[in-house]
């Protein structure tokens, strides 16, 4: 059964013009086409992929070069050459940005002492300049979020509503892990949300941008830079500077658990000694 499909018609036209090619000719043609296709694919690949040593051509700034030398001595064993990461040891640093570096290195969390649930805050191993240089190096490796310049704490004389808005945003976004008083809280399996009583505005901003450890990333789409500044204003003025009233001791603001300890250790102990004293005088 012949049907007059366009394909068959084309085939007929083709065979009419050329005639049936010989077997050797067919094979030769196939080989040539194959080589051409391979050459084309390879050529396109070569043209569009960066070379294996592409970074040799990237011009690092002076600060980044300093950072690279620090990186090559202190970070490379886990994060690998050029921040590409090492499996099961350290993640890739391409694209994490200087915000992440400034937070992790500036708070002493990196370099890590050992692999555990979460990096602990400790005395920073690098000074501020070195941290900036490392940040610059990672920034130039693959870009990423950066802490903006300028003040991160709002002037509440000029913007009085910032404090209340920051408090609102803090309660919505932060208290579920860091606690109502910013004292920190436990997460599963030894992970935790750290206390917010120590970090500087820069570090808080960097943490929100980069989402270190188990913290989610609060990118500029979730919290605008203005909202981030409000939150920092609340943390700085309301939680860190201890502006809330109600006594000399706030019991760590860990909620009713420390209050329960206090009533037994202070109230009951004082009164039991009082009753010993009163009953003793007979």
């Amino acid at each position: 059964m012949t049907s007059d499909t366009p394909a068959r018609r084309r085939a007929r036209v083709f065979s009419r013009r050329r005639g049936a090619p010989s077997r050797a000719r067919r094979r030769l043609g196939a080989a040539v086409r194959m080589i051409a296709a391979l050459a084309l694919a390879g050529g396109v690949y070569t043209a569009f992929t960066p070379g294996a040593f592409a970074e040799d051509n990237v011009q690092l700034s002076a600060a980044a070069l300093e950072g690279k030398s620090l990186y090559d001595t202190s970070c490379i064993s886990c994060h690998g050459r050029d921040g590409q990461g090492v499996e099961d040891r350290g993640p890739s640093l391409i694209g994490v940005g200087s915000a992440s570096v400034e937070f992790q290195v500036g708070t002493g969390r990196m370099p890590m002492t050992r692999q555990e649930a979460q990096a602990e805050e400790k005395k920073p191993q690098f000074n501020e300049d070195q941290t900036k240089q490392l940040g610059q190096y990672v920034q130039e490796l693959g870009g990423g979020p950066q802490v903006p310049d300028g003040p991160l704490v709002d002037d509440i004389e000029a913007k009085p509503e910032s404090l209340a808005r920051g408090g609102e945003l803090f309660r919505i976004n932060c208290t579920s892990c860091h606690g109502f008083g910013g004292g920190g809280g436990a997460l599963s399996s030894g992970k935790f949300a750290p206390s917010l009583h120590d970090p500087t505005p820069d570090q808080i901003y960097a943490a929100m941008l980069s989402g270190p450890q188990n913290m989610p990333v609060f990118g500029d789409n979730q919290l605008s830079p203005d909202e981030k500044r409000s939150i920092i204003t609340y943390i700085q003025l309301q939680l860190q500077e201890d502006k809330d009233p109600g006594g000399l001791f706030n019991l760590g603001r860990y909620g009713p658990s420390t209050e329960g300890v206090a009533i037994f250790l202070v109230g009951i102990v004082l009164l039991v000694f009082t009753s010993l004293w009163i009953a003793g005088k007979s």
Binding site: G181, D244, G246, G247, L248, F249, N250, L251, E259, V266
Partner: peptide, 9 residues
Amino acid sequence: LFQINPIWL
């Protein structure tokens, strides 16, 4: 001396 239940926070 001791703050208890800081409702404002």
